[in-house]
Each structure stands twice: as C-alpha cells, then as structure tokens.
C-alpha cells in the first residue's frame, strides 16, 4: 500500500472511494489485444499508465516525431471503456489495412478515430496526450510484419515494447480493464465530446450501468458515422 505513488500529493482528490491496490511489484506483461477481422500479421498491444508525471516529455517526443515513440498516446479521461478504445483501434487498423489512413500513421489514426468529426487537429487536442492535463495515459502500439510472427518472437516483441514504455513513462502500469478505465473517465468531457447532453435515450434511462452502456454505444456509433 505504501507504494501507491504520489498519494500524499493527490489526497485532496476524490481518491478515498477507490479500492487500495496491491503494489504492482510483479512484472506485468504487455497485453496483446485480440481484434477480429484484422489480418493475423497485425499485433496490437495496449496498457494503461496511471498518475503519469512526465506527460510534457512524452508529448514532446510525439511532436518532434521521435521514431522511438511510435505509439498512440491517449488521455485516458476521454475513454469510456475498453470497447470504446478498441473501436478506435480497430477503425485505425482497418484503415491502415485498406490503405485509407487520413493521418500520417496508424498510431495518430487511433487518436483521430476517437473523434466524431473529420477535424484531425481537434481529435489530437481532445483525445491525445496534453502536456499540462494528462494524468492517466492509455498507450497503444500497433505492429505489423509481412508474415504473422511465431509465438516466441511475438513474446520478445511485447517484452521490448514494454521495457521501452516502462523506461520512458513515469507512472504506474495497470491492466487495460473496464474497471481501471472507469476510475479515470471524465464523464463531463465524454458527454461534451460525443454530444451526449440532452439526448432523449439517456433521460429515459434510470439505471446508471445501463446508461453508461448506452453512452458507450453512442460514442462508438458517433465514431463509426464520423462526418455524416
């Protein structure tokens, strides 16, 4: 428990309702995220970093196009759930497979895919990492090769990505689960970005869990319909 980083500094935030977490001294492996309808020579890895303290450094690497930082860095407060995130990842990978990227690469495409309109800069600003605001960071790494990788090589690859991430990101690595994401979602932002304020179906829904599920569906739908 004593290992929770920066607990003294963040004690004024509403952290009291949160479950204390066991110290993550066990080496975590990087999750390979399963997606359907994507060629097997694509691999998608994802993780969530909590309480990130060097967001300005990370954003600078993206802006300077440091080739070692080919990641999608997403401000986790704008993410509703795992399915919401993966919808954007899927759309980006599909665009890459089809040769229809609208942004420089598949990683920037993930961030832009979270937007419900075609304004790419707007997408980066809202969903991407921002130096002064991003506290919790979703990281997605997408790799492809001419042929599917054998299991052993794929494990090495995941290992390498993870060690680079943990050496560069100052934060606490956690699994990319709905529970972890739910702890950092900023619903006010989500409602604004996905135009969910005053939507009749939400007013008609009383159950909070059902309501969140509907917001997730409408966010995914907004992304699928982008620009229509």
């Amino acid at each position: 428990m004593s290992k929770r980083p920066a607990s003294s500094e963040t004690s004024d935030l509403s952290t009291t309702s949160k479950r204390p977490k066991p110290p993550s001294n066990i080496t975590m492996s990087l999750e390979r995220i399963p997606l359907e309808h994507i060629p097997p020579n694509y691999r998608v890895y994802g993780a969530l970093f909590r309480d990130v303290s060097n967001a300005p450094f990370l954003q600078t690497q993206l802006i300077s196009r440091n080739p070692e930082f080919e990641y999608a860095f997403i401000d986790a407060s704008t993410i509703v759930s795992r399915a919401h995130l993966l919808a954007a990842v899927w759309n980006a990978v599909y665009s890459s497979v089809e040769g229809n990227l609208r942004t420089p690469n598949v990683h920037s495409e993930v961030v832009a895919s979270l937007n419900i309109n075609n304004n790419i800069a707007d997408g980066y600003r809202r969903w991407g990492i921002t130096s002064d605001k991003t506290k919790d960071l979703v990281v997605v790494k997408i790799l492809s090769s001419p042929e599917p990788l054998p299991q052993a090589e794929q494990e090495n690859e995941a290992e390498e990505v993870l060690s680079h991430l943990t050496s560069q990101i100052e934060g606490r690595l956690v699994r990319l689960t709905d529970q972890e994401i739910a702890e950092v979602t900023d619903w006010q932002k989500v409602r604004k970005y996905y135009k969910l304020n005053g939507v009749p179906v939400l007013d008609q829904t009383k159950d909070e869990a059902v309501k969140k599920k509907k917001m997730e569906s409408m966010a995914i739908m907004g992304m699928a319909l982008r620009g229509l």
Partner: peptide, 17 residues
C-alpha cells in the same frame, strides 16, 4: 443513430465502410 439517440429500440452501429 438517430433512432438510437431518441430511444427507439434499434441495434447500435459498431463500424462501417
């Protein structure tokens, strides 16, 4: 999309091309 937002029971869209 329109029906879903208005609370008409319809399937949600997941992705499209």
């Amino acid at each position: 999309d329109r029906c879903y937002r208005e609370g008409v029971p319809v399937p949600a869209v997941l992705a499209k091309d």
